[in-house]
Write a protein that binds this DNA or RNA. Structure first.
Length: 464
RNA sequence: UCCUCAGUAGCUCAACGGCAGAGCGACCGGCUGUUAACCGGUAGGUUGCAGGUUCGAAUCCUGCCUGGGGAGCCA
């Protein structure tokens, strides 16, 4: 009587038919009658529960089994019986059921629907529920798919640093990393904190992006990607923002903005197909209980050409449409959330790349277009979630980059190494940042980022 | 940070100035195939916190706390 997992049993039910098996797991539901009862058991290896049937005649501890409560850990042994006419494929006729870990009657997870808000307060128990079981298995699969996509294409995986002294990038508010005593920091004569006596001898923070380091590696390995945690200390409280999230940042050399969009589009489609193929049970669940029509929508997107428009065309299209906006549409201003939603949800009804944004509203490292007014930036907007990718072709011309840095008031001495990439064998290159949780939300239909991160860190919240 | 809505039993909610309730869950019992089982019964409350108005406040007012949604910032 070897122990088997539910995953093995589901995969080879016929093989195990009429044989004795032993399973370990947690009780999801237990219903007893006068002389027999049913336990719905989940062992974590498969989304579904399996049914354990126990009978008074066969089991001396029948009353104890009948009293096993939801949440208890048990071990059950019995014969696997195929039940083609019933709702489940098979069940186990128990010959022995032992309690491994009791669960008192105040176990908060009940065999009923719970609100996401309630479960969020119990991040230690919510993985045992259907929704979060599905979400976090898919999260694991999706991370694997990301690596597989890039590795299949010969990209080199770069571990960009998590602690960095770059504060020149302006991608968001920074979390300071320090070993100085906050109550009594060393001070310079000017009264300012003397970071030269801090751990690294300078002011350091958690990374807001691995992009600049990825550019270094792209100009050595040609195609690279980073995939790691990213930190932003923004005081933003929305269903789409977290202080700690994971970001995927490919960077490709000898490549322009079109190559960049091609890569992004191919990647999004690859990830969709991967999940539809490898997470059938979970995707069916999302389709049925989280976002009706999700699978059909994703299939369409995997087969559709993403729209590709310029910022100027977007402005034109938004001006033409009858819909009223709270914020006026005007060249030179960034697209508001309502504008982005209109583009992707109303006008195109599919993912949309918007390129060629005005120079002033984008970052210093983006390549200036020939018109001198716009840059080779691209955002990918998707229905429901909004922006999931932001990227650009990078400015490879040293003198233009210097002008940009001056314009954005960035000290080029701090980024001397970034400048040298342009000096020694500099070449056109491009890349983008994909929010891992954002695409996970998009692919599962789960609408709050706190529900796709195991232990979310947001403003005023760092539990578990 | 701003706007907005909401906090009542373990959970989801009702009561909206006059006795604090239901469903689910828990507990006890019944039931020979259940599968978010079903049937009967029992217990369970500082109505988020602090103050105010009133004969009387879950209900009206003020402040605070917590959570949801929207905006900004972005991935």
């Amino acid at each position: 009587m070897d122990k088997v997992t539910v995953r093995q049993l589901v995969a080879d039910a016929e093989e195990f038919a009429e044989k004795e098996v032993t399973v370990n797991g947690w009780v999801r539901n237990n219903r007893d009658q006068k002389s027999f009862g049913f336990i719905a058991l989940n062992d974590g290896t498969h989304f579904n529960t399996i049914q354990i049937v126990y009978e008074r005649e066969l089991l001396p501890n029948y009353d104890q089994i009948a009293a096993m409560r939801v949440g208890s850990a048990i071990q059950a042994t019995g014969k696997l019986v195929l039940t083609p006419e019933a709702r489940q494929l098979f069940e186990i006729k128990a010959t022995e059921v032992q309690l491994e870990g009791d669960s008192p009657s105040d176990y908060p997870i009940q065999p009923k629907r719970h609100s996401r808000e309630f479960l969020r307060e119990m991040a230690h128990l919510r993985p045992r529920t259907n929704l979060f079981n599905a979400v976090f298995r898919v999260r694991s699969l999706l991370a694997y798919a990301v690596h597989q996509f890039f590795q299949e294409r010969g990209f080199v995986y770069l571990h960009s640093p998590i602690i960095t002294a770059n504060d020149a990038e302006g991608a968001g508010e920074l979390f300071r990393v320090t070993t100085l005593d906050p109550k009594d920091p060393p001070l310079k004569d000017s009264g300012k904190v003397d970071y030269s006596s801090d751990f690294f001898g300078k002011k350091t923070n958690l990374t807001v992006s691995g992009q600049l380091e990825a550019e270094i590696f792209a100009l050595a390995f040609k195609d690279v990607y980073t995939f790691g945690p990213t930190f932003r200390a923004e005081n933003s409280n929305t269903p789409r923002h977290a202080a700690e999230f994971w970001m995927i940042e490919p960077e490709i050399a000898f490549a322009d903005l079109k190559d960049n969009m091609d890569l992004a589009e191919e990647m999004v489609k690859y990830l969709i197909n991967y999940l539809l193929d490898k997470a059938v049970t979970e995707m069916d669940f999302f389709n049925q209980f989280v976002d009706k029509g999700l699978k059909e929508k994703l299939k369409q997107i995997a087969n559709a050409e993403f729209a590709r428009i310029t910022y100027a065309e977007a402005i034109e299209a938004l001006k033409k449409i009858k819909q009223k906006f709270e914020y006026p549409v005007e060249w030179g201003k960034d697209l508001q959330t309502e504008h982005e939603r209109c583009l992707t949800e109303t006008i195109y009804q599919k993912p949309v790349f918007v390129t060629g944004y005005p120079r002033d509203i984008k970052a210093f490292y983006m390549r200036v277009n020939d018109d001198q007014n716009t840059v080779a930036a691209m955002d990918l907007l998707v229905p429901g979630v909004g922006e999931i990718i932001g990227g650009s072709q990078r400015e490879e011309r040293a003198h233009v980059l210097e002008q940009n840095m001056a314009h954005f008031k960035i000290n080029k001495n701090d980024l001397w190494w970034y400048m040298e990439l342009r000096k020694y064998g500099g070449v056109k290159h491009a890349g983008f940042g994909l929010g891992f949780e954002r695409i996970l939300m998009y692919l599962t239909g789960v609408s709050n980022i706190r529900d796709v991160i195991p232990f979310p860190r947001t403003v005023n919240s760092c539990e578990f």
